[in-house]
Design a protein around this nucleic acid. Structure first.
Lengths: 224, 224
DNA sequence: ATGTTATTCCAGTAAAAGCGAGAATACTGG
DNA sequence: CCAGTATTCTCGCTTTTACTGGAATAACAT
């Protein structure tokens, strides 16, 4: 084997992982998996994909070394192969946001309105400090299972769909900080709008759980 | 446009950048560009690709926001769009190395022999400290143009092809530290072998110029 | 065993990517 | 303005990818 061929073979290997990141549906799946392991069917329904397609993408991701699977009864749970995969995903998003102007437009279409207004965002250190001082209420608006897989200590789990119900009993006027999966997760944006519309002071945590964990900040798992 | 569609559109944008990383030849091109800007023809010859194919890949990378181009006379010089692109590339390599076992095998085939022996490697801080103390000679074995685009302060430019010639006049018995482009660049491995074979004490800098720069360490440009 | 459920495997199809060879284009220097 | 050079565009051609609907598997419960 020539030097050239050996070099190609090596870069071919790196490209295997690159291929995993080269499709929007696969990125959606990775994004979901960054919150904890999930079954194929659950991934398919959230990502809006057919089952066989989802299965195929997951096998592609496994081939790329980005995910691994575990059998539990009839279910097969997929998960990221490591923390570093989440970091890679976050960096891809960050670099893409910096260099592709279309992302801002697509993001504001998806997340709604004035996404870029930083006045509504709290950074991680501020949240940490204020929740420890008991000055704020932290709301985790992801689905319950994701909350159980890991959340910010002290956060209350209120899945977005239960927010209205929660508000009915929420007479407190403390400030609320809302978070969800990560940088481009829509849940917290929606929640902040709902909270503000019903007269509460609410802001969104900058980014979300993925980046919180990557920053090495404390994570609690199980029920609140 | 539905929520689903808006979400897809957003992830489609991230996938654009992912596609840039999904082909081995494109990764080779990015790797070369991480050392500084280059013309199309120069990239094509080093990567072993046809001119039209190279041009097409470069346009793909431009579409992905990973590279930009600049015209100078009849030449068009391509470059990475930012330092963060180099960081993304380095992280992709690192994550792939962690999770794809085949990479070790492909790497040792390409780089030759006992790649993994860490005894032959010097880390960045050790190099920095010892070159400042004047205890070692640092050899940059990349092509001259890449050396000019940016090198470790105090390093001597000896392109690999000129190494034999250099050795003829090199009677010093100080230790030599060799570096080249980055983690999987073959030049420094070859150079260390040549140096050792002719009785010199030589070790390789861990990784290379790309990672040195990303670590925020001092870089000098222009002639030595 | 048998039926149930979650997942994977298997064609088959349409679309896209990768590639080289040669024509076309864009700039430079007489 | 014209020849020369670097790059891009345009075809064809082959390979790969994305996806679907239905058959096949694997573990489980009865």
């Amino acid at each position: 084997m020539s030097r050239r061929d050996a070099k190609s073979a090596l870069y071919e290997q790196f490209a295997r992982m690159g291929k995993g990141l080269s499709n929007s549906k696969r990125l959606e799946l990775l994004d979901l998996l960054s919150q904890g392991e999930r079954s194929v069917e659950s991934l398919a329904s959230v990502a809006g994909l057919g089952l066989s397609t989802t299965s195929l993408h997951l096998q592609g991701l496994k081939e790329a070394g980005l995910v691994a699977s575990r059998r539990e009864g009839t279910f097969i749970h997929y998960r990221l192969t490591g923390e570093d995969v989440g970091a890679l995903l976050a960096m891809l998003r960050a670099v893409a946001t910096t260099h592709l102007a279309e992302i801002d437009r697509a993001a504001s279409k998806y997340l709604g309105g004035n996404v870029l207004d930083p006045a509504d965002e709290v950074d991680r250190s501020e949240l940490l400090q204020r929740v420890r001082a008991g000055e704020v209420i932290v709301l985790d608006v992801r689905p319950t299972l994701e909350f159980h897989a890991g959340h910010i200590p002290g956060a209350v789990s209120v899945p977005l769909e239960d927010l209205e119900k929660f508000l009915a009993t929420f007479v407190n006027d403390e400030e609320v900080i809302v978070y969800c999966r990560g940088a481009y997760c829509v849940l917290a944006y929606d929640a902040v709008r709902t909270l503000n519309a019903s007269g509460h002071r609410a802001r969104r945590l900058h980014e979300g759980m993925l980046e919180w964990r990557l920053a090495g900040l404390p994570v609690e798992s199980g029920a609140a």
